[in-house]
Simulated assay, not measured.
Amino acid sequence: MTTHVMVFGNEKGGAGKSTLAIHVACALLHADRRVAVIDLDLRQRSLVRFFQNREAWGQANGAALTQPVIPDMGDGPTLARAEPQVQLDQFQRALDQARAVADVVCIDTPGGDTAISRAAHAAADQIVTPMNDSFVDFDMLGQVDPVSLEVVRPSMYAETVWEARKRRALDGGTPIDWIVLSNRLAVAAARNRQRLDERVALLARRVGFRVGPGLRDRVIYRELFPFGLTVADLSDEIRPVAVSLAHVAARQELRNLMQALKLDADSTPRQAA
């Protein structure tokens, strides 16, 4: 079986890459998929820490929580100080290990342009790029004219993805699916969002990415992190916080996200209301 490699990438920090990687990985686990996760944010390692929290909370509360495979990347801060080739070799070993055991590999990348991040993009079957509701975030994808706000040219991160796609084509591999997600949107609509959405749509046609829905800026996505849980885990037995209608809406957002990524439609479990 071919392993599907998903890379959560955006050279700007704070866009929500780790949050998306966490929720997609957990949704896939609930769909009985074999999942591996690789955290290339070597200093912060939010993805790995989430699953460490998940294991600890499950053991303390007698809850059987499914876990992904986490290939050994060594000590993160030490590896972050190592030479680029050492990092690349360690990543390749981790990726080979993940591909050997998993249906889906979720790779979280750091904010910034690094050799190890470029290697992950080149290995991707699907690149997931979250973008906040801001022209600051859009600037990583495309540059706009300061007077007319017309899209002038693709930016540096778009060029990084283009290079990964070109390399895949030269190697005779399947095309990389690139999807940009509108992430951490405020609940209320705004004129700025409309202007931004129009530019994203224009750039999508120009450089060839799909546009999909991300996750709104909800407290639930943050308050479950210390427990290593997501809205996909909440049930009558697993309920560390009070469940409200906002959680029901969050579950639907997660379903919409999985469908936009063209993953299994039933990637979220049946939940108690």
Rank of each mutant, 00 (worst) to 15 (best):
R81Y: 05
L65I: 10
A80H: 06
Q67P: 09
Q85P: 04
D39T: 09
G74L: 00
P84I: 05
R81G: 02
L65M: 09
A56M: 12
R33G: 03
Q90Y: 02
A21M: 15
A60M: 14
I38R: 02
E55I: 08
A27V: 05
V37E: 02
Q44E: 08
G74A: 01
A36I: 01
E55T: 10
A31I: 01
I38G: 09
L28W: 13
G74M: 00
R49Q: 15
P77E: 00
A31H: 02
L47F: 11
Q87V: 00
L29Y: 13
F50Q: 12
G74H: 03
R81T: 03
L95N: 03
G62C: 11
L47G: 05
E83F: 07
I38C: 09
R45T: 09
T66Q: 09
V69Y: 05
G58S: 12
Q87A: 07
D39W: 06
D72S: 04
H23C: 07
P68W: 05
N61T: 15
P77D: 01
L28D: 06
M73D: 09
L40S: 08
H30C: 06
A27H: 05
A63C: 13
A63Y: 04
N53Q: 11
V86Y: 02
V37R: 02
T66M: 10
Q44G: 02
D89H: 06
C26L: 06
A60N: 14
D41E: 06
A82C: 01
L95D: 04
N53F: 08
N61K: 15
R43C: 12
L79M: 01
Q67Y: 09
A64I: 14
D75N: 11
D32K: 07
A63H: 15
P68R: 08
A31S: 07
G76A: 08
Q44H: 02
F51G: 15
V24C: 10
Q87F: 00
Q87T: 06
L79D: 00
A21F: 15
V48K: 08
E55F: 08
L29T: 02
R43H: 00
Q90H: 07
D32T: 03
A63N: 10
Q44F: 00
T78R: 06
A31P: 01
Q59D: 13
T66C: 11
A82I: 05
Q44A: 11
Q67H: 09
N61C: 14
L79W: 01
Q85M: 09
C26H: 07
I38Q: 05
W57N: 11
A25C: 12
L40Y: 08
C26F: 03
F91P: 09
R54W: 14
Q44L: 11
G62R: 10
V86H: 06
F51R: 13
